[in-house]
Every structure is written in structure tokens, then in C-alpha cells.
Computed example of a mutant assay.
Amino acid sequence: MAKNKNSKLLNLLSGSFGFTLISIFIGLIIGAIVLSIAGFNPIEAYGVMFKGVFSKPKYIAYAIIYATPLMITGLSVAFAFRTGLFNIGAEGQYIIGALVAALSGYFLKLPPIIHVLVILFVAALTAGLWGGIAGYLKARFGVHEVISTIMLNWVAFYLNNYIVMLDGFRRPQSETSYDILKTASIEILGNWKISDTGREWLANYPFLADAMRAPVNLGIIIAILLAVLISFILNKSTLGYQLRAVGFNKYAAEYGGINVQKSILVSMIIAGALAGLAGAIQVMGVTKNVAVLAAMEGYGFNGIAVSLIGGNTAIGSIFGGLLFGILQYGGPKIQSALQAPSEVINIVIGTIVFFIAIPKFIKMVLLLRKKRGEQFVR
């Protein structure tokens, strides 16, 4: 009986989900070692981080807000991975989506719900076309998507900075744009919660009142709906079958009658649209504007790690983004509380991604463990 239980446990850990759990555990262990070397108690530091996320409803809300754009950029990267492409351009597509959302959110005058839907559509379309440039170059001329998307990231970066500084869009004496109109916001009960009626009602529900102190918005709901939609497209639709077939073997797919060039283009358009939606949601729900960028914000690049943590699956990207959000929001609190280096969190994240990227090594260790267990039983 014990042998069967051990065998089942090892089989579970040998799967992709098991690799992820092991990688997270190793990342936390290495982070603890680094903290110990630096002279800090790792248990105390992780305790501070845990309390910094889960001790108050407001903290939980902020962690989810941090995680939401990462979920969607992770979804973008995962979609491209599943179709045989490496969308390292999610960063640029995110920037384009955010910029278009700020422009249409400020200049368009539409009713509340319609305004939100129009912005999401326009941002997704524009970022999708931006991603489609790399798809076209790959399909038509064989230009590798890693090279083209890296270049497009920088084009998007400087295009954002140029447009933000244009008269009529730039807020006077600043390096940010005007805020989007209230009709373009997806913040939940934004005006109501600061009204007299809202404050009186929330006073009866302290838990909810504390959570609403954060800029709670519809982004997390949109992210989950997008994950369900992408999962359905990839696993249950003809389009998903064709895209995955091209990803597995484009020559076999072409022999089977699938238009490979069209599939590459469509895949990059969808991936770009997803990353653009992440940028739009961040603007509509949190920042309300865009600013001149001194450096890449990292949402698209972190989406690559989120996708890997999530096993390059749609639903996995939601949980991977949530883990990232928790670490990124709770991690810096060890610096203010203990004066411990917050860079430890980046070491943890990097270690997790590193070990997820080498599953064969973990599998080898597990197999050795399994063989030793069998020899011990004998």
C-alpha cells in the first residue's frame, strides 16, 4: 500500500503541475538561503510577505490588481507558445493597447457601457494588428518572430513617448496624458463609494469597505473570461486545432491542407490583441492615463514567466499571474519591515522560472528517487 502511494505521488510530481510545484518550492528555498546569508530570518521575512498580502482585504485586492495585467500578458504568450510561436513582443503590444485606450478614453465621447466596449475593441484591434506585423514578416519572409517583436517593442516604446508629449493630449507641465473620461473607467463603484450614501452603506461592512479602498475594477473578471475563451478556442474549435497543428509540425499541417502562413498571421494577431487588452484594462481600471516611459514597464516580459509557471495553458496563466502578483506586491514589504533586500523576490521568481524551464533535470531527480525507493522496498 505504501509503495503504491509513493508511486502515485511520484507520478503526480512528474507531471507539468508537479514540476511547477517543485520549482516554486525550490525558488522559496533558495530565497530563504539568500536571506539567511544576508543575515535575515527567512521564516520571519516570508511571514511579513504573507501578512502583507493576506492580512487585510485591501492588500488582497491590490495583489489581484497587480496580477491582472500579468494574467493577460501571460495568456498572450501562452497562446503563441501553443501555436509554435514565441511572442516576446507582448511588452510592445501592451504599450500599444494602453496608449490606444488612453487616446480613445479621452477623446471619444460615448455613453458609459458603450464607451468601455469600444475602447476594449479598438485597443485589441490595434494591438492585434501590431502583433500581426511580426506574424506577416514571419509568414511572408521567414523573419523570426523573436527578432521582429523585439524591434517592435522599441518602436512601440518611442511611439508612446512621442504621442504622450503631443499638445492636446499631454497634461500641461507634466509628462503624462490627460485622464480618461469617467465613462471609460471600469473601476467598480468608483464614484458611489466616495459618496455619502456609499460611505454610510460601507460602514456596515468593514471587510468590503477596506477592500474598496483599492482601485477594484472589472479587470480580473475580464481576465478569467479571456482565459476561458482562449482555452475553448485552442481545445474545442477548428481554428484552435489548425493553429496547434501548425505549432506541432508546420510541414505535416501543410500536407494536411492547413494554410500555414495564414495560421501564423492569425496566431500573432490574437496574441497581440490579448496583450493589448492587458494594457487597456490597466489604463481603464488603475492608472487612468499613460506617461512617458523611462524604461520598459515589464508587463509583457513578465508575462513570459507567468506563461511558463502556468504550463503554457490558459487557466494556468491565471494562477501563474496570481502567484506573480502576490510575490510582487508582498515582496517589497520585507524591505520596509525588516530592511531585508526586496530583490530576493526577483531571485525567487527567477529560480522558479529557471527550474520550470529544465523539467528534464527535475524528472531525472524524481526517477532516481523512485528507483532508490524501489530498491529500498526490495
Results as ranks from 00 to 15, higher is better:
residue 149 T to I: 08
residue 224 I to M: 07
residue 98 A to P: 11
residue 166 L to I: 12
residue 292 V to N: 03
residue 278 A to T: 03
residue 39 G to R: 08
residue 157 F to S: 05
residue 164 V to Q: 04
residue 284 M to Y: 03
residue 68 T to F: 02
residue 321 G to V: 00
residue 63 A to T: 04
residue 177 S to E: 07
residue 295 A to S: 13
residue 222 I to G: 01
residue 282 Q to K: 10
residue 295 A to T: 14
residue 177 S to F: 08
residue 314 A to Y: 01
residue 128 G to M: 04
residue 57 P to Q: 09
residue 231 S to A: 14
residue 254 E to N: 14
residue 65 I to E: 03
residue 336 S to D: 14
residue 125 L to P: 09
residue 241 Y to I: 14
residue 274 L to R: 02
residue 130 W to L: 05
residue 150 I to C: 04
residue 367 L to A: 14
residue 252 A to V: 08
residue 8 K to P: 09
residue 236 K to P: 12
residue 345 I to L: 02
residue 276 G to Q: 06
residue 133 I to P: 01
residue 173 Q to G: 14
residue 26 I to A: 07
residue 197 T to L: 14
residue 69 P to S: 05
residue 374 E to S: 12
residue 160 N to V: 11
residue 122 V to M: 13
residue 91 E to D: 07
residue 113 I to P: 08
residue 163 I to R: 00
residue 291 A to M: 11
residue 194 I to A: 08
residue 312 N to K: 13
residue 35 L to V: 08
residue 373 G to A: 08
residue 227 A to V: 07
residue 181 L to C: 13
residue 170 R to F: 07
residue 160 N to S: 10
residue 58 K to C: 10
residue 236 K to T: 11
residue 171 R to N: 11
residue 98 A to Y: 07
residue 237 S to A: 07
residue 196 D to N: 15
residue 293 L to V: 10
residue 285 G to M: 05
residue 81 F to S: 05
residue 334 I to W: 01
residue 105 G to T: 03
residue 231 S to G: 15
residue 127 A to N: 05
residue 378 R to L: 10
residue 306 V to L: 03
residue 152 L to T: 00
residue 149 T to H: 05
residue 299 Y to G: 04
residue 116 V to H: 03
residue 131 G to V: 04
residue 109 K to H: 15
